[in-house]
Amino acid sequence: MKQATIVGLPFVLLTGLLFSSCKKDSAEPPAATVGTLTIDMENVVGSAPLVLDRSTYTSPAGEPFTVSCFNYYLSNFKLQRADGSEYAVPESYFLIRERPTGPNPDNGKHFVLDSIPAGNYTGISFLIGVDEDRNMTGAQTGALSPDNYMFWTWSQGYIFLQMEGNSSRSGEPGTHMLAYHVGDFRRPNNLRIVAPPLPSGGNIQVRQGHAPTLHLRADLLRLFAGPSPALTNSVLFGPFWMAVGGSQIVPIVNNYSGSTDRHVPGTNSMFTVAAIHND
């Protein structure tokens, strides 16, 4: 971005001057009043760690399966204070991949939210996927680069979550494959906000000179069953071994987010806060 600006300097100089003076007005607080929050991700399947290919798990419906691929985007992180106010972490887009492919070898399981105003935070929320606007913005870099193969190039938009594997119960007779690719931000809108509760009485203490870490756990089993009988769409691998976006995938989205609405945060989702380390 910076490089492109330099290239076009002669033409946009005046505009650029205006923009840069705008930026100064909304400058970050002085360094002493901000800190970081590190997120450590752990993927699990129920009570077991996620091991690709080699481990066989049992779905809530009692069907065996293995996992060969598990990727997802987390974005638009927000931290809530006890007084009800919140801080939205700008440009927070992260891609977690159990086994990275493409030019970027980072599995994304360890990332840092920085320049957070110092204070005590009593809640955290984020989006599973990439917000509508960024699906329609131009060429992207880093976690959002299409080089990561998490971007549909035909009906364009990001893949929010991707799980593939195998099951002897799969309705696909040849390979016994399972493939669930979540996307779509128009109709249906398969984005969901989740707000996993902090451990009882816990808070996140962001301070200059401290480095708090939040240990976030993602349970893959939650793709196949929701948080309650009322919110569960039971997945059977025979009839439902593959879905790529659209309305077909909505039952899985509602299961893992614990929410049926783009704008209602799921508090009982596939994500749980396992621990907070306020070092």
């Binding site: 329609m136 131009g138 060429a139 299409p146 971007f151 190039t153 035909w154 364009q156």
Partner: peptide
């Protein structure tokens, strides 16, 4: 299918 000119070429590249 495409909402931004910059990403448009991805469609014919990969189709």
């Amino acid at each position: 299918a495409v909402a931004n000119l910059e990403n448009q070429p991805l469609a014919p590249f990969t189709n």
